[in-house]
Nucleic acid binder design. Structure first.
Lengths: 368, 368
DNA sequence: ATGAAAGCGCTAACAA
DNA sequence: TTGTTAGCGCTTTCAT
């Protein structure tokens, strides 16, 4: 049966555009799905069975050198690449790391860059997936994504700012900046408390005493820790915490607008503001300048995260830098160690990376 | 046969962690793949066939309201989500848009942000895939990725800076900043020539006459157009183009190092430099300051792209802003229009978005 | 209205 | 050494 196989027509790569299949009988089928060469096409063209092709592709034993070489050549000629979809469904490894995100905003992007950098040269591909949360299903997007990905499309996953507890999962998982405090997941985050501490100390050193705090989302661990840092800095400087100077910003620009306005309406308004993230800090600046206040002369502002926009705002925002890229790298490293058997899974293990205050143009000593 | 079905045990969501399956016979199988609920589990739990479940999920006709409601409830209770992998393999639509990238660097990230923004609320999920090019297979990564994704995991794809011609593809495709000039692909890019024109005009207006150009990769359309803009600006100002002031930077920091050094070694060195991208521009600054030159007093520098690092360099880099986000949005819009049948495919159609010079701190009038 | 069964591309027993 | 076959989870005819 193999008789004519080896002597069969050799397809020129250039010719593939119009005739992806080597066997005449399959030509019509090929027309429908132009561009996609399957293992069947290869088997037919090489005159062997699909399992033989599979063995060659995956370097399994049980194929003669001669056959292996022949098949390899046909694979090259046809430009065949095994479909992750099919092999994944079948259950094998895919050599793909999944990064599950709620969306592609600055925070996510920074982390992604780190993961990508760490993965180069490891043989793993990177697949970032953002499941647009179905209406009314904001929280728990990561569970849905994990399900949709089938737990097999990817060999392991990195969850970026997951919102809910995820207990049993089909593949090894590591979380970055988990929102629910200590979870059973292995996780990585920036040192939120210390970052806040640095930010507020900086304001105190500049001579500020009436320092307000624009809080983050109350249900998120990071927001709680940032507020804790704010309080501690005040305490250690002997400055009493005034609750009316703590307002809710929700990490959102829109929520910040009203909160900051209320702050500035106070009889004794603050001379400085520590916002829980850059997005709300930048909005706070807008609100202040909109009222004729000058930043930083009349109001100093410090943010958190150090997103790209922080460097381009006018004036440039003083903020706490989170090592997003490094967080991504570390997460990838931990996951790979586990996947490649270099380390055992350590549920609940939590690592914190140092944060760093970046002083730019929105902070100065209070006037008079 | 349905007899006991409706009266069957109702699984509490909380109980799922340990017993994802409702039928005793399947309990052991479930143990192996904890966390993944399949359509079979749902069918068994609901006491109906898998095809019925499938119909309900996809809103097909041929299911009684009563059954539909029952199945829906079980789906909710078990937290079932259909696997993209399986449904994709079967051939149906997945409602997933693929973004194929060479890696996750600043350029890519900006585009991704735009695509993501445009996709919110459309019902499409976003899957970004970076196939770590196999050794020696740098170019053509997009063809490999496209193959690996099976042409069915995704309903359509956006190729970011593809490197080779891609003729017939399994799904609708649109390219951003294609590297090979006019291709059969529908594509979108920034206005490279005009951006370069703005950059060099700016230098001329400042009073510069000896303006050098650090070229990009010669095989890339964008680099050619940027050089063209440079030449045209000089020409229209009546300044003769001096070929010795044009050197190769390859878009790479390392290549830029030597090229810039050579430029500064000239008997009559340039007072200004237009670099083909930010990465090489920033390196050029380093080289100059390393030789004791001051930027911008002794050497003005303009970059291209406006990556985040351009805003944080010291001094901040004057550069040409590419509307990365808008490019992503437009690509997504075009693709969706095609997928949803609102527009016909227009092979070869090319759209250019305006670029904009951003003057920051690295350009000034030449010192006497 | 419902279910049985085929098949998408691939891998891994198992047979020959 | 090679081929045959049985699924992986899902959708979709086609029966019933």
């Amino acid at each position: 049966m193999l008789a004519g196989g080896y002597g069969g027509p050799v397809i020129e790569p250039a010719a593939l555009q119009t005739a992806p299949s080597a066997t005449a009988e399959r030509a019509d089928a090929a027309d429908e799905r132009a561009g996609r060469v399957t293992i069947n096409d290869v088997a037919a063209a090489a005159g062997v069975s699909v399992s033989t092709v599979s063995k060659v592709i995956n370097g399994r034993y049980g194929v003669s050198a001669k056959t292996a070489e022949h098949v390899s050549r046909v694979v090259g000629e046809l430009g065949f690449e095994t479909s992750i979809v099919a092999s994944s469904l079948r259950g094998g490894r895919t050599n793909v790391i999944g990064v599950l995100v709620a969306g592609f905003e600055p925070f996510t992007l920074g982390v992604l860059q780190g993961i990508s950098a760490e993965l180069t040269g490891t043989g793993y591909d990177l697949l970032a997936y953002s499941g647009r949360s179905a209406p009314g299903e904001q929280a728990g997007w990561e569970r849905r994504s994990l399900s949709r990905l089938g737990g097999t499309l990817i060999d392991g996953a990195i969850l970026v700012t997951p919102t809910v507890e995820t207990a049993s999962t089909p593949v090894p998982i590591i979380a970055i900046d988990p929102h629910t405090g200590r979870s059973p997941l292995q996780s990585i985050s920036g040192d939120n408390r210390d970052g806040a501490l640095q930010a507020v100390r900086h304001l105190i050193e500049l001579g500020h005493r009436r320092i307000a705090h624009l809080r983050g989302r109350g249900d998120l661990e990071s927001a709680l820790l940032r507020e804790e840092g704010y309080r501690r800095a005040l305490l250690e400087a002997g400055i009493p915490v005034r609750e009316e100077l703590i307002v809710d910003g929700d990490y959102l620009a829109d929520t910040a607008t009203g909160a900051v306005a209320a702050l500035l309406d106070l009889a004794d308004p603050p001379t400085a503001l520590f916002a829980a993230n850059d997005v709300s800090a930048i909005r706070a600046m807008d609100v202040a300048t909109g009222r004729g206040l000058r930043v930083p002369q009349d109001l100093s502002v410090v943010g958190f995260d150090d997103i790209p926009a922080a460097a381009t705002s006018v004036p440039a925002l003083t903020t706490v830098h989170q090592p997003l890229e490094e967080m991504g790298r570390l997460a990838a490293r931990r996951l790979l160690d586990e996947l490649d058997g270099r380390a055992q899974p350590e549920p609940g293990r939590h690592e914190e990376l140092a944060t760093q205050l970046v002083v730019r143009g929105t902070t100065a000593a209070p006037e008079a």
